[in-house]
Design a protein around this nucleic acid. Structure first.
Length: 422
RNA sequence: GUGGCCGUAGCUCAAGGGUGGAGCGCCAGACUGUGGCUCUGGAGGUUGCGGGUUCAAGUCCCGUCGGCCACCCCA
């Protein structure tokens, strides 16, 4: 085979795509139920949108973006995450002008030049939602409740919600200084990566899974005593609202989101079924992002949820999604005659809104019935020579095997009644 | 980007350096007008690709591409 899909990118074949359709429909239903409206932004942005939005020093921007020059010499990037582009669009179209909050959601492909692994792809898809224009902790809790309720609705019971506050520009620097002071005493004991992190971003040491770093981390100062009063109040407010909804979460001082724009709330949800790539969704507040992008300050909070990972977890949990891509009716002939009648009948059925299919090759009846079975047809309509002579059709219920002869006149209505009954 | 494991039929997998197989799926017959179950037969492969070692390579070596695992990072 000469050509394959590009590394880390995948075809979604009919055996899978029906699951995507089901999930997407459920996601849209949920989002609309929560008052979110869809936004579709281009897959490409000027590279600066991500450099300034996500942050120059982040791994995403430093080494994971698909960046290239267009024919006019401008640097463009395939979007590696959703929020920066949404905020760019919000600012560009002044969406806040007609009142706040503005609640937006998207289902979109994202691109990161990572080394592919199960649950980690160079093109993946996220369902994300953002509430812009309000700093209120109720918005944090509301936007987080959406994916949590969605996962519960799908039957995922064992999701772990982790919650943290990463502070803001007023208090985070004090905490970072405290971390430097603490880890500075143990530099020799840190792994090489963490020695690097010590200089670049000591917060990241908290994420390290190396045993020796992890031990030190357990004794490290947490951010909580360093939070300013505003951040403290906000964090308590988020917890209070989640409590009101009965949503369980773990306060986890060690989650540090890898995008620079996060302030205050940081949340991640994991599933043990995913191996190392175990984050199902992540999100948080980003009150500084809009001004980073050159706009007025616009507070915002949101999340992004990986659809591939959601599907993987559903599979691991043995949760079957309802499949609805079968046909209602299969029109069969006896092979030699009735081609024209069958072709016309199919057309009429389709115009009448039935899902109908047939065998374009008019193989022998046995083969056609086999095809009807494989297509999941609920009824087979057999137009044999005898039936045609009588102006009738044989209608077979594929599940029960019961058959009856019905006049061609009014056949579609008769079928519709039988289909609706079951 | 680092380290490791693995690429054989559409799918899941066998084959100790010596003529590449099975199950499922597909097509057909048993059943000349009836699917699912059963039985029988058939089609389908330059063993990912390129090079090397050897009388001989799916098997050993190197490279490359791809998948997976861990790291990194994250969804």
């Amino acid at each position: 085979m000469k050509y394959r899909a590009v590394r880390g990118m995948h075809d979604i074949l009919p055996e899978e795509s029906w699951k995507w359709q089901y999930l997407e429909e459920k996601i849209r239903t949920f989002a609309h139920r929560y008052g979110f409206r869809e936004i579709r932004t281009p897959m490409l942005e000027y590279t600066e949108v991500f450099q300034r939005g996500v942050g120059e020093g982040t791994d995403i921007v430093e080494k994971e973006m698909y960046t290239f020059l267009d024919r006019g010499g401008r640097s463009l990037s395939l979007r590696p995450e959703g929020t920066a582009a949404v905020v760019r669009a919000y600012l560009e179209h002044n969406l806040g002008a007609s009142g706040t909050p503005v609640k937006l959601y998207y289902i979109a492909p994202l691109f990161r030049y990572d080394r592919p692994q199960r649950g980690r792809y160079r093109q993946h898809h996220q369902f994300g939602a953002e509430i812009l224009g309000t700093p209120d902790p109720a918005a944090d809790a509301e936007v987080l409740s959406l994916p949590i309720r969605l996962m519960q609705d799908l039957g995922l019971r064992e999701v772990e919600v982790h919650l943290n506050s990463v502070g803001d520009a007023a208090c985070r620097p004090r905490y970072i200084a405290a971390l430097r002071e603490y880890f500075g005493r143990y530099l020799d004991e840190l792994c090489p990566d963490c020695r690097r992190r010590y200089d670049v971003n000591p917060l990241r040491i908290l994420d390290c899974k190396e045993e020796r770093c992890h031990r030190l981390t357990r004794e490290a100062p947490t951010i909580f005593p360093y939070l300013c009063q505003e951040c403290r109040n906000h964090f308590e407010g988020v917890q209070e609202h989640l409590d009101w909804l009965g949503i369980r979460y773990t306060i986890d001082p060690f989650i540090v989101r890898g995008l620079d724009y996060y302030t205050r709330t940081a949340a991640e949800v994991y599933s043990g079924k995913l191996g190392a790539q175990n984050a199902m969704f992540g999100g948080g507040r980003y009150d500084g992002l809009a001004s980073q992008l050159g706009g007025p300050p616009v507070p915002g909070v949101g999340f992004g949820m990986g659809i591939e990972r959601l599907l993987l977890v559903l599979e691991e949990e043995g949760i079957a999604l309802p499949r609805e891509d079968g046909v209602d009716v299969f029109v069969a002939t006896t092979g030699k005659t009735g081609h024209r009648e069958a072709f016309q009948l199919l057309d009429q059925m389709r115009q009448a809104g039935l899902r109908a299919d047939g065998d374009p090759s008019h193989r022998e009846l046995r083969a056609q019935m086999k095809l009807a079975n494989r297509l999941g047809a609920r009824y087979a309509v057999i137009l044999g020579e005898e039936e045609l002579r009588l102006g009738m059709a044989t209608v077979r219920n594929m599940a029960s095997g019961d058959q009856e002869r019905l006049p061609l006149e009014g056949l579609i209505e008769a079928l519709r009644e039988r289909i609706q009954k079951t």
